[in-house]
């Protein structure tokens, strides 16, 4: 009897954790998009007021942000400073590849972040500011979608996990 109870509670716990993980993925997506928007806001200031060269600006931004978004900026800066002849886009892409497992973005979000690589360092000040602002706008839309999805899916997945676990237990018993 005790074994059955133990097994049943393990099944319920495992199913609930599964549902919880999926719902926290939606939460992480929202948080990471917010971090990215914050990063772009900081970069706007670095470009606009400080005229800080990009590697330095990336280091400054990377230090202030949480992982993994901050790490992407820091690693891109390290690659730029290594002087291996890589373009800004290549450095950005490599940094993204190294951190893609930790980034919980949707496909659309990843595409946007990937597109950021094309933005860096190719334009004069006003062009650079406009391009950052454009990506910001697109990221805001992505954030709105991600927030909607989070609100929609958060409770569903948590309950679904729990109820799924209970259903399984009932059938097995």
């Amino acid at each position: 009897m005790y074994f059955k109870l133990l097994g049943a509670s393990l099944i319920v716990f495992a199913a609930y954790t599964y549902g919880y993980n999926i719902s926290s993925m939606y939460q992480k997506r929202v948080l990471q998009l917010k971090e990215l928007l914050l990063a772009l806001e900081m970069l706007l200031a670095e470009v606009n007021y400080g005229l800080t060269p990009l590697p330095r600006a990336f280091i400054n931004v990377g230090k202030k942000l949480k992982k993994p978004v901050g790490t992407v900026f820091s690693e891109a800066a390290t690659l730029m400073l290594k002087s291996k002849g890589l373009s800004a886009q290549e450095c950005w892409k490599k940094a993204l590849e190294r951190n893609c497992d930790a980034l919980q973005l949707s496909r659309n979000g990843m595409e946007l972040v990937d597109r950021l690589g094309l933005v860096w360092g190719q334009c004069d000040k006003s062009g650079q500011l406009k391009q950052i602002a454009l990506i910001q706008e697109l990221l805001r839309q992505a954030l709105e979608e991600a927030e909607n999805e989070y609100h929609k899916n958060d409770k569903i997945w948590k309950y679904l996990g729990l109820l799924g676990g209970l259903t399984m237990v009932i059938f097995l018993l």
Binding site: L51, T52, L54, A57, S83, A88, Q122, D124, Q128
Partner: peptide
């Protein structure tokens, strides 16, 4: 040429407008 320009301007053309 494109790559060289990126490298000499430390990927930051905006920071070197006056020099350009």
């Amino acid at each position: 040429l494109v790559k060289t320009l990126e490298l000499i301007s430390s990927y930051s053309l905006y920071a070197y407008e006056e020099e350009l």
